[in-house]
Design a protein around this nucleic acid. Sequence first.
DNA 1: CTGGCGCTTTGACGCAGATCAAACAGCTAC
DNA 2: GTAGCTGTTTGATCTGCGTCAAAGCGCCAG
Lengths: 248, 248
Amino acid sequence: MHKPETRSIPLTLSTIKAACSQCSLRELCLPFGLSEPEIEQLDSAVGSRRRVKRGQHLYRAGDGFEAIYAVKSGFFKTDVLLEDGRNQVTGFQMAGEILGMDGISVETHTCNSVALEDSEVCVIPFSQLEQLTREIKSLQHHFHKVMSREIVRDHGVMMLLGAMRAEERLAAFLLNLSQRFIARGYSASEFHLRMTRDEIGSYLGLKLETVSRAFSRFDELGLIRVQQKHIVILDNPGLKKLLNPQAC
Amino acid sequence: MHKPETRSIPLTLSTIKAACSQCSLRELCLPFGLSEPEIEQLDSAVGSRRRVKRGQHLYRAGDGFEAIYAVKSGFFKTDVLLEDGRNQVTGFQMAGEILGMDGISVETHTCNSVALEDSEVCVIPFSQLEQLTREIKSLQHHFHKVMSREIVRDHGVMMLLGAMRAEERLAAFLLNLSQRFIARGYSASEFHLRMTRDEIGSYLGLKLETVSRAFSRFDELGLIRVQQKHIVILDNPGLKKLLNPQAC
DNA sequence: CTGGCGCTTTGACGCAGATCAAACAGCTAC
DNA sequence: GTAGCTGTTTGATCTGCGTCAAAGCGCCAG
């Protein structure tokens, strides 16, 4: 447990109203597939917003679990720690994605969630969400899908870590980011990495030098253009070919 | 899609009755924490049992999703495949554990589930489970915990794959198996591996030879005794020390 | 009993990625 | 501006695990 590092925005009529029904992310986030009246109900469960500054924790391993969070804006990473200090980044979350589901199992968070840029989340108190999913069938089903999607995503990461080589991992990582930017209406081919080489390395089971070398190699091959955190994808099919040599 | 390889046991009064309320696994499985009347209701949702012979699939990637499964007896592995044939074992499941939650997200299974010995599962049609979890609050909450536990477990596997060395991975694997056998009333220190070195290797992101060498090394160190698939754990604290050198 | 097959063990060698090290780029504070 | 810090790049070298190969074990079929 620790004291929150950020203030909650007071629950006013306007902040409630500004929740799901007006949200540009509703096609990506929890309201997906709900009818207007159902979204209004969901709005009432979304208690408040919370701003998290770059570098601050949204929650830490060991914190009591009370709510899940929808990323409203910004960028997060989640990681787990070993006693000896080694850590493993388990994911990067962007707008519309849900954070905190690790906490449901033992009513305590088991990983850390850190903002990689100034961010804002919608706080969804879990007991209220459960109440609502008992009443709204489509919300229930969608929430189950969100949890299941997280499991499927984790399997993909296991595949990366267990069966792919360094450059394949980085190619898969870039293509995945690109896909997620497309879904949010951003450029698929040009973006700014919010995380360091070390964080990418931790996520991909590689050392930061290996990540850096792989970026440089992709640049030499003309697949991408790298300047520090600025990435331009020049040859999307080429990256896919790296991932799966026989097909394509 | 493929045609089922196993017959369902017909739904008779006795098979229904024999479901959750009489089941020796109810303290590990979905009925955990439910009252007797609630368990009776759950019984009615558990449609049937299904036997799966060693080597047969419970489901395959691409199969339509209709139900989740509780392992009644036996042992399973789940794996995901890459187009080029590489595969990644994502988990091993034993009695009382739930299989198939990967299928919820896109209504299609995304991994394969194969019996490693002659096994039996309880088939829990998912729409009926959702219906029931809308009615029974404690079942709803417990089901959410089961899904969340799977996410937490996956994070642990990422930690294994991304941040630990070969012998640490194998030590963690053995300790995890041992823990799960304890919970089922079996010996914690002596057991029979149901999976091959290759399957262990795939799960741990290692080649089968590396797994074999690590087993031999543990044997030499007096930590365990290995004879093919028969394992005796001689020095549990020693294995833990391998995992976390500074502590202990 | 015997042959064959799947799985495991062990050895010799090679390489992808880790480690160590140094220079460099970009940002913030003053 | 410039000092200092954090993060990145690149080179040289090392090593843990992979690869290749061969022998051994245990089980089943005939």
